[in-house]
């Protein structure tokens, strides 16, 4: 089981801040493909990959990052701190 978190408009499109997901996917991209296939909320949230960022166990990562041993994944738009 992986804890999956959503922030900002990704959270709004999916309609939840977090959920626990059982996945067979090997990479972040594989997880995204699983989620997109679930329903249109996910397809909408993950429509434009250029405007998405991912953190794996609270570190920024690429979409090709492996999921083995990972506890927490977060999806969000580019950050706007400062």
């Amino acid at each position: 089981m992986i804890e999956v978190l959503y922030f900002a408009w990704v959270r709004e499109r999916i309609g939840a801040p977090r959920e626990r997901i059982e996945t067979e996917a090997a990479t972040v991209m594989g997880l995204i493909e699983d989620l997109r296939a679930r329903d249109e909320r996910y397809a909408w949230a993950f429509a434009d990959m250029t405007s998405l960022r991912v953190a794996v166990d609270q570190e920024l990562a690429g979409f090709d990052a492996p999921l083995a041993g990972v506890r927490e994944i977060a999806f969000f738009p580019p950050m706007t701190g400062g």
């Binding site: 922030f7 920024l60 977060a74 969000f76 738009p77 580019p78 950050m79 706007t80 701190g81 400062g82």
Partner: peptide, 26 residues
């Protein structure tokens, strides 16, 4: 530190105006 906080610290700003709410784009 300012440059990194802008783009690499996980914060997201949303502006609320009389026209509604909008996420600030990076």
């Amino acid at each position: 530190l300012m440059d990194y906080l802008k783009s690499r610290a996980p914060f997201w700003k949303k502006e609320l105006t009389s026209d509604g709410a909008e996420w600030v784009a990076a």
